[in-house]
């Protein structure tokens, strides 16, 4: 019997990744990393790691002599003659180079187990160029209107609604995990109708980004409407004392691709509120500009501090077609 330390290390690493992912799912921490739409996929990864672990542990012990061919295919038997075979089976002697590569592989396991996950904050928003992307989204939507043709007034409503739906439903909605941002067509239409008609536009989590895009692309139409929304406070150099952005991160796959959306808001108390505070505001939409791009601005009438929501991120909505 021969013990292979490196094979043991590899099996430990495989199991480690599997346990790390399962643990994140178990504690719910996984929602701070990826869009719930991909939960099943990541569980599948954890499962594959587990399978690979069970295969790998058979390589930790090998019988010294004759049994080699039975126990592990080709390793001892063939690769000794054939050792320019093009990858490392983990049998070659241990070296500094290997130490470095194993340390790199261990790094995410260590930080994953030892450090808590963190909700992205306004410093990341700053690095991502928050105001630029906010200004960007409204201009982008303007382009879209010109493509759709110059329908005006009431007609545009229906038209926009229609196209939005078509595009959104193209997303794959095969996985059902209970967390994901999925709505039936009827629910979606009801929410869009509320956006057009309700006296107070209420931004709930699931529809936030859709409402945001609608409003950014038709600021004039929504001017004067009352809104109410939650978000964390983001401030940037060049803001005046009474300005802040009530912002959220929109996560498409994982938090690495989070983009920031939010409304520039104005009210006297704004200067007193610290960055990253979660607040709920109510106010009225007005026209404004940022770096020559038109953006919506909320004149806040009422605000209060709130607790950070359980799911701090927003996810693009997907429509289920029945």
């Amino acid at each position: 019997m021969k013990f292979h330390a490196q094979q043991a290390a590899r099996s430990l690493i495989l199991l480690g990744f599997s346990v790390l992912i399962y643990m994140m799912h178990y504690t719910g921490e996984i929602l701070l990393f990826i869009n719930p739409k991909y939960l099943l996929l990541s569980q599948a990864a954890a499962f594959i790691f587990l399978i690979l672990f069970f295969i790998q542990i058979t390589r930790v012990w090998t019988l010294k002599s004759a049994d080699a061919s039975e126990s592990c295919g080709h390793e001892d038997g063939c690769c000794s003659q054939d050792h320019d075979h093009n990858h490392d089976h983990g049998d070659t002697p241990f070296s500094v180079k290997k130490l470095v590569s194993y340390s790199i592989i261990l790094l995410p396991l260590l930080t994953g187990f030892l450090l808590p996950a963190k909700v992205l904050d306004s410093s990341i928003a700053d690095k991502k160029g928050a105001m630029l992307s906010i200004a960007g989204s409204s201009k982008k939507e303007n382009n879209k209107e010109s493509v759709n043709g110059n329908l005006s007034g009431q007609d545009t409503n229906n038209n926009d609604l229609q196209t939005d739906q078509d595009s959104i439903s193209t997303e794959d909605t095969a996985t059902v995990t209970g967390y994901e941002n999925e709505k039936s067509e009827a629910e979606y239409e009801k929410l869009m109708k509320q956006l057009q008609e309700s006296p107070l536009i209420d931004f709930n989590e699931s529809i936030f980004s859709t409402y945001y895009e609608e409003i950014s692309s038709n600021i004039d139409k929504f001017q004067g409407r009352k809104v109410s929304l939650n978000g964390f406070v983001y401030k940037e150099e060049g803001f005046s004392e009474n300005q802040l952005v009530v912002s959220r991160f929109l996560v498409t796959h994982c938090v690495a691709d989070a983009s920031i959306i939010g409304f520039l808001s104005e009210f006297p108390d704004a200067g007193k509120i610290q960055k990253d505070t979660w607040i709920r505001v109510e106010g009225v939409i007005e026209n404004s500009t940022y770096m020559d791009s038109p953006i919506p601005l909320i004149k806040v009438t009422k605000w209060e501090e709130i607790k950070e929501p359980e799911s701090p991120y927003l996810y693009p909505i997907s429509i289920r077609r029945n």
Binding site: F17, I21, P108, K118, D121, I124, A256
Partner: peptide, 29 residues
């Protein structure tokens, strides 16, 4: 997790780092 204080930017870094890996693992596998 309760005892050590780590600068928030490092925690941000770690979260983004792990999220890229978690998202990439299924595809790499």
């Amino acid at each position: 997790k309760e005892t050590i204080v780590i600068p928030p930017s490092l925690l941000n870094l770690n979260t983004i780092f792990l999220s890229i890996l978690i998202e990439a693992f299924p595809f790499v596998l």
